[in-house]
């Protein structure tokens, strides 16, 4: 399959990227790992006249804890996340999500920034990052702004990126003691997008959930925060009864549609099951203390 013709540029700093985006407004696309966009171009579902590759732009591959946050540069690859001991130990839910994105070869090139900016409801990172209350930083010629991921994810394939803005980094608040996160995905086989998946983040204080985050993948037009489920569990002990009710509320928040993966009712039931499982795992990790 041959994509439509385009002009390729690999600028070496962000101001050059902004210039190109402005010069070719509406006709230019950013290229990160290309693992979502190139397949679209090959199918001619996308035919941008200009492709602006971020591979030579410095400063987009940070992966470090700083000022109370984990900073993930937009160009950090899934493989880098998956192999980072810091991520695995302190942000286990992000590790879980990386490990189930596509397959190991795609993960060598697919970036976290691309996973979020693509805004496909089937992408795995947004739901986990919603649960972890992540913020994103956008940089454009008119300055830089930071917003919650909730505000960034607007709709299917639609984000809050405006004009010449580029997603530069994702910031995940560092978990307090006794925190745990996890992500569980139901997929038919390796490389498939989720039938449904759920991410959860929990902080415990004196045996009670002081902070709860729950995000749902591929059961709506975009990644969904299960707000009522989060509120219900906050302030409660994560026992069987409360987890069961939280899972039921999460299933209520899902907006699945019937497709080749299965009927809407089935997907809603899966959200309920996955939410209960992922909450138990997050609580277990929070209690264990080490693996957060």
């Amino acid at each position: 399959m041959i994509p439509d013709d385009f002009t390729y540029a690999a600028p070496t700093n962000l101001p050059q990227v902004w210039d190109l985006l402005r010069q070719h407004e509406g006709d230019a696309k950013i290229l990160a790992g290309g693992q979502s966009h190139i397949p679209l171009m090959k199918l001619r579902l996308a035919s941008p006249a200009y492709l602006i590759d971020l591979r030579n732009v410095p400063g987009l591959t940070t992966l470090a804890e700083r000022d109370g946050s984990l900073i993930i540069g937009a160009m950090v690859t899934e493989t880098t996340l998956e192999r980072s001991p810091l991520v695995r130990q302190r942000y286990a839910g992000i590790y879980d999500a990386s490990a189930v994105v596509a397959d190991p070869i795609v993960r060598n090139f697919a970036t976290v920034g691309g996973n979020v900016a693509h805004a496909d409801p089937a992408n795995d990172h947004p739901a986990m990052l919603l649960a972890l209350r992540a913020n994103v930083t956008l940089q454009g010629s008119r300055g830089s702004r930071t917003m919650s991921l909730d505000d960034f994810m607007v709709d299917t394939f639609e984000t809050a990126l405006q004009g010449d803005e580029v997603l530069s980094e994702i910031r995940v608040p560092s978990p307090p003691p006794q925190s745990g996160s996890a992500y569980i995905k139901l997929e038919r086989k390796v490389g498939d997008y989720a039938i449904a998946a759920v991410g959860a983040a929990v902080t415990l204080e004196n045996g009670v959930c002081s902070r709860v985050g729950i995000g749902l993948t591929n059961v709506g037009p975009k990644a969904i925060r299960a707000t009522q489920a989060e509120t219900f569990l906050t302030g409660k002990q994560p026992d069987d009864a409360s987890i069961r009710e939280t899972a039921r509320l999460a299933a209520d928040a899902a907006q699945p549609t019937t497709d080749l993966h299965g009927p809407a009712d089935y997907k809603r039931a899966m959200v309920q099951t996955l939410t209960a499982r992922v909450l138990r795992l997050a609580v277990q990790r929070a209690t264990a203390g080490g693996g957060q």
């Binding site: 390729y8 690999a10 290309g34 190139i38 590759d53 591979r55 070869i105 795609v106 090139f109």
Partner: peptide, 18 residues
């Protein structure tokens, strides 16, 4: 699959210019 600077890549999903 080929190795690009030692890393496995699906060469049907990269442009040569990249």
């Amino acid at each position: 699959t080929v190795l690009v600077n030692g890393t496995p890549a699906k060469s049907c999903t990269l442009f040569a210019v990249q």
